[in-house]
């Protein structure tokens, strides 16, 4: 069998792997954002115990290698909880929980860079603190956070390949399956690499578009416009 027909034969299998990888990354980013933003708010505006608990969470998930986390959840924590979960679900959850730790710090930095005056002005108009956070602080923080947040996508995309270790049928897992079956190594791994690079490129374009969409004149992050 020549290389071309091997690639043609296995290509659909790899493309399915792309879909699994995209699913992993999207789930992880969404879980990370849905937990990370509230955690950031809690860390800036919360009570002391809450700040402590969030700090502990961040310390834990940033402190362990992603593979250790993955094994821990897949082989220990979820089985102990009597949860028989699909490897994809465990992978997405672990990447998401870990991403939340990183994302919370991206959002926290953004919130803290907003001038105190924004909250002061909102409160002076009779807004509650919660309403001010919701309507004034978060819309600004998310915009400020976007450039830093855009790091999360390639990070999670490349990290997602580690789900190979628990057998999620993502891009790398399928690539090595093909290699084992066909004994063709280099060209298949190069194909896999190209697919990762393509995913990276496409995702970054989406984020760049988003950044442009929500951009506001003179407000490109770093607190008040024009003030360094």
């Amino acid at each position: 069998m020549d290389l071309f027909s091997v690639v043609a034969e296995w290509f659909p299998y790899l493309v399915e792997g792309i879909l699994v990888t995209v699913g992993l990354v999207a789930s992880a980013l969404i879980i990370g954002a849905c937990l990370g933003l509230p955690m950031a708010i809690g860390q800036v505006y919360g009570s002391r115990p809450l700040k402590y608990v969030i700090g502990l969470y961040v310390w834990f998930f940033r402190g362990l290698p992603v593979l250790v986390l993955l094994f821990m959840f897949y082989f220990t924590i979820f089985p102990l909880l009597n949860l028989d979960l699909d490897a994809f679900f465990v992978g997405a959850t672990v990447l998401g929980l870990r991403g939340a730790a990183y994302q919370s710090q991206i959002f926290r930095g953004a919130i803290q860079s907003i001038s105190e005056g924004q909250m002061t002005a909102a409160r002076s108009l009779g807004m509650s603190r919660a309403a001010a956070i919701r309507t004034i602080i978060i819309p600004q923080a998310v915009r400020i956070a976007l450039p830093g947040w855009s790091n999360e996508y390639p990070n999670i995309l490349t990290d997602s390949a580690i789900c190979y270790a628990i057998g999620v049928a993502e891009l790398l897992t399928r690539t090595s399956q093909i290699v084992t079956q066909t004994y063709i190594t280099m060209p298949i791994y190069i194909l896999c690499a190209l697919m990762f690079i393509m995913l990276n490129f496409a995702g970054m374009r989406v984020i760049a578009y988003l950044e442009k969409r929500v951009a506001i004149p003179g407000f490109s992050g770093g607190g008040q416009a024009g003030i360094v």
Partner: peptide
């Protein structure tokens, strides 16, 4: 207490640095 938000609606404030909502 919480009623302060009602009073603040009745007491406007203008700041040296404007504090317009930047977004």
């Amino acid at each position: 207490g919480k009623k302060i938000n009602r009073f603040r609606q009745k007491i406007g404030m203008v700041f040296q640095n404007f504090y317009l909502f930047d977004h």
